[in-house]
Design a protein around this nucleic acid. Sequence first.
DNA 1: TAAGACGGGTCGA
DNA 2: TCGACCCGTCTTA
Length: 206
Amino acid sequence: MTLFKHLLKKSPIGEITIVYREEPEFQLEEIILSTPKELSSKRLKDKYEKNERLEEKTTPELNKIIKEINNYFDKKDYKFSLKYLNLDKLTDFQKKVLIEDFKTKKGQVLSYKDLARKIRNPKAVRAVGTALSKNPYPIIIPCHRIIKSDHTIGGFAGIKEGITAKKTLLEIEGIEIKGEKIVGNSSIMALGNEEQTRLNEFEKEN
DNA sequence: TAAGACGGGTCGA
DNA sequence: TCGACCCGTCTTA
């Protein structure tokens, strides 16, 4: 199995490396972000150098995805799809969390707790955090839109330094942040009344 | 294989 | 602000 890589050198959150495969079909393997301490290319090297040397290359499918990512950063219309993501390597729980997270819309945020409730597992709040920290497809699956209940932004990408990138992504989406906290309620995605009632009943029963 | 530790958290005091 | 607690996953033996 051969993997390829492509480097996006300039983005508002620094260098980004995309790892993908072409066999048996085009599929993204993961998206690696940089941290303030380490470039994504270095993180890629640490992870893959034992296994294989990745060839730098682009394909038409990849170019489409890059275009959407650039549109996202440029605040233009964009459309991400789950089609090219390989979710099979994830656990069922992780899949549920990430797919539910994928449904959140640009400019809206949700708390870890709300996300846990949406997947009908209201007590698995910490597990939701763990699942998000292992999100192989940041940006496309918007784990940055999940914040703590007290509206502080929480962590990102499983690393403390990741919150700088999380802040930047939220700001690109028009969310106002002061210090570590989201300000204003307009951006907080509320559960609809009907859904709220359903969840309350579900929680009573269980 | 299984117990124990560990998180991007929450809630009540 | 602190501590108890929730739960899926990882680590270790």
